[in-house]
Amino acid sequence: MTFVLEARALGKKYGKRWALRECTIEIPAGHVVGLVGPNGAGKTTLLKLAGGQLEPTTGGVTVLGGRPGSTPAQLARVGFVAQDTPVYAGLTVAEHLRLSARLNPHWDDGMARERIARLGLVPAHRAGRLSGGERAQLALTLGLCKRPELLILDEPVASLDPLARREFLQGLMEATVEHRLSVVLSSHLVSDLERVCDYLIVLVDSRVQLAGEVDRLLATHHRLTDPRRDPDRLPADQHVVSASHTDRQSTYVVRTEAPIHDPAWTVTPLGLEDLVLAYMDRRPAERRRVALEVQR
């Protein structure tokens, strides 16, 4: 089985700071993968490594079975829409299509023109005059119409208003279904990804905390609520992701393969956002506790 993205102990260091470390993941083909994590968690670094924009410091990464960015053929198989969807301000929309047509062997010109027309972009307009949403759509069009097998998008909707966000993601979804391509997109907002992703990677503090298909993640995570109880007394096959306590009750987010039978617990299903937040919360929570102890 080939993976769209396969990383082994992948790490990237800027100076003395690790932007990404010990990243080992395998993403099967055919998914829309959401890469989520707080700002500065290493999302862009991981995506740039996958796009061949960066060289790893440690470990290795293969994309669609090849070394990222190494050859024109490899570049042709991967589309990359960078953060803030950069385009040439001085070039017109039509000139962007032309440059992509000349630089990509599988360029689908009919599809590009059709998309541009449907989006209401005027070919003669300079890209510098486009709104943020239009610019993002142009960048997406350039990424899609080179007909890649994998499309990587780095925070594509970060600077868009809610309506433009919805339109952009909608367009992305339609194209994904139509052309059966794999997509990896990052965001620091789960709500952006919730609608479109069926695979999720949570990246916190330069480490991968969680990776898997969304359905499976939701099926194996539960929120347990109970009058205060010690976590040591939780069944052994349950892994506590996060815990919070008030005077009256304890709430745990746990991961478990087995069903939960203990009637003492109130089990509630977990939404994707809560799940992600539970993972994001973990490390800062530890730190917070240390800080409190110091103050005491």
């Binding site: 024109p72 570049l75 440059l99 992509s100 599988h106």
Partner: peptide, 17 residues
């Protein structure tokens, strides 16, 4: 500065070329 290197270096052309 404009970030467009990320656009052009992700076309099907190596940055060496």
């Amino acid at each position: 500065e404009a970030g467009t290197h990320l656009l052009v270096w992700n076309q099907s052309i190596t940055r060496g070329r």
